[in-house]
Computed example of a mutant assay.
Amino acid sequence: MQTFNLEGEFIPMIQLLKALNWVEHGGMAQRMVDEGLVKYNGEVDYRKRLKVRKGDVVEFDGMKVQII
């Protein structure tokens, strides 16, 4: 599992997917969330503007990241 160092209070899910280079652009990130391919703390979450915070775990396409 990789880690992502959060520099503020939160990061929107779509921005996180882009920052990790898990997707090529925002439109692709939105599609992945819409299709239920992203897990947030072990559960599929369809909210594109979900505020990901420290301590959260996000999973996508066999990859997993812990927010620190």
Rank of each mutant, 00 (worst) to 15 (best):
V23H: 10
K48I: 10
G27S: 13
N41T: 00
R49Q: 13
A19Y: 11
M1Y: 15
L17Y: 04
Q66A: 13
I11W: 07
E24T: 07
E24W: 04
I67K: 01
G8W: 08
H25S: 13
P12C: 06
R31S: 14
K48E: 00
F60Q: 00
M1C: 15
V23R: 10
E9L: 12
G55N: 09
M32K: 06
R47C: 08
M1P: 11
L17K: 02
W22N: 08
K48P: 02
M13A: 10
V44C: 00
K64S: 12
A29F: 04
D45K: 05
M28A: 12
H25Q: 14
F60C: 03
R53G: 07
E35G: 00
V57D: 04
E7W: 11
L17E: 01
A29G: 05
K54E: 12
R47H: 07
N5V: 12
K39F: 14
Q66N: 14
E43M: 11
E9M: 11
R47W: 01
M1D: 11
G42C: 02
G8D: 15
G55V: 01
L6R: 07
M63Q: 15
L6G: 00
L6D: 00
K48N: 06
I67W: 05
D61C: 05
G27N: 12
E59W: 10
Y40E: 09
K54W: 03
G55A: 07
L17N: 01
R31W: 01
G36F: 02
D56L: 03
I67Q: 02
N21M: 07
G55T: 04
A29M: 03
H25I: 10
H25L: 13
R49F: 14
G62P: 03
V58D: 05
G27E: 08
M13H: 04
R53Y: 07
V57A: 01
F4S: 00
I68F: 14
A29Q: 00
G55Y: 05
E24C: 06
E7K: 14
M63N: 15
D56Y: 00
Y46I: 09
R47K: 09
G55S: 09
M13P: 09
E43P: 02
N5I: 12
R31V: 15
N41I: 04
D56A: 03
Q30W: 05
Q30A: 15
G62L: 01
V23C: 06
F10V: 00
Q15L: 10
R49N: 14
D61N: 15
V52C: 04
L16M: 02
R47M: 06
G26D: 04
I68Q: 15
A19L: 12
